[in-house]
Amino acid sequence: MAEIKEKICDYLFNVSDSSALNLAKNIGLTKARDINAVLIDMERQGDVYRQGTTPPIWHLTDK
């Protein structure tokens, strides 16, 4: 899980924002549900936040 978090942070640092599906595909996974639990956990920790569009767009925080 730590490896996936690191990949998410690296990708969002370079791209600035992404949907869960696009993010999953760009870090080597196939479906948004493969990454949603990790994104929600990271959101609780304050590492990422989502804009409430459908589907949500994920961003890194300034943390």
Results as ranks from 00 to 15, higher is better:
32 A>T: 12
23 L>G: 06
20 A>H: 03
29 L>I: 12
14 N>G: 09
38 V>W: 01
9 C>T: 14
54 T>A: 12
59 H>N: 09
2 A>M: 13
36 N>C: 06
45 Q>L: 04
41 D>M: 04
40 I>F: 10
35 I>Y: 01
50 R>C: 12
12 L>D: 02
1 M>G: 09
29 L>M: 14
16 S>V: 09
5 K>F: 05
36 N>F: 05
15 V>L: 03
1 M>N: 03
13 F>I: 14
2 A>E: 15
13 F>P: 10
47 D>W: 09
8 I>Q: 11
62 D>F: 00
25 K>S: 04
58 W>T: 09
25 K>I: 03
14 N>M: 10
37 A>G: 07
54 T>L: 05
15 V>T: 06
49 Y>Q: 13
54 T>Q: 13
10 D>S: 13
40 I>M: 14
46 G>H: 00
34 D>E: 14
30 T>Y: 14
35 I>L: 08
46 G>T: 01
18 S>N: 03
2 A>P: 07
46 G>C: 00
40 I>C: 10
47 D>F: 10
58 W>N: 08
8 I>M: 06
24 A>M: 06
3 E>S: 10
38 V>S: 08
50 R>S: 12
24 A>R: 03
43 E>N: 02
48 V>F: 00
58 W>Y: 11
35 I>G: 03
47 D>Q: 14
14 N>I: 09
42 M>F: 00
40 I>S: 14
54 T>M: 09
45 Q>V: 12
62 D>P: 07
47 D>A: 11
49 Y>W: 12
29 L>P: 07
49 Y>D: 08
14 N>P: 02
62 D>Y: 05
60 L>H: 03
16 S>C: 09
4 I>M: 09
16 S>K: 15
31 K>F: 02
36 N>M: 10
37 A>W: 05
11 Y>V: 07
58 W>F: 09
51 Q>Y: 12
29 L>R: 07
11 Y>M: 06
49 Y>G: 12
52 G>Q: 10
37 A>R: 12
25 K>W: 01
30 T>P: 10
23 L>K: 04
52 G>A: 07
1 M>Y: 07
28 G>H: 04
61 T>W: 01
2 A>F: 05
30 T>E: 15
15 V>Y: 10
45 Q>M: 08
24 A>I: 03
49 Y>H: 12
30 T>G: 12
6 E>D: 04
9 C>A: 11
31 K>A: 11
61 T>K: 11
26 N>T: 06
48 V>L: 04
41 D>A: 08
15 V>E: 12
49 Y>N: 07
55 P>M: 02
23 L>W: 02
35 I>N: 06
34 D>N: 07
46 G>D: 04
38 V>H: 08
11 Y>F: 12
2 A>C: 06
31 K>P: 13
6 E>P: 01
59 H>A: 15
8 I>E: 07
13 F>W: 12
56 P>M: 00
25 K>H: 12
35 I>K: 08
51 Q>G: 10
62 D>N: 05
42 M>G: 05
36 N>I: 05
49 Y>I: 13
24 A>D: 01
23 L>M: 07
55 P>A: 09
28 G>I: 00
32 A>S: 11
54 T>F: 06
59 H>I: 04
11 Y>W: 07
43 E>H: 01
1 M>R: 14
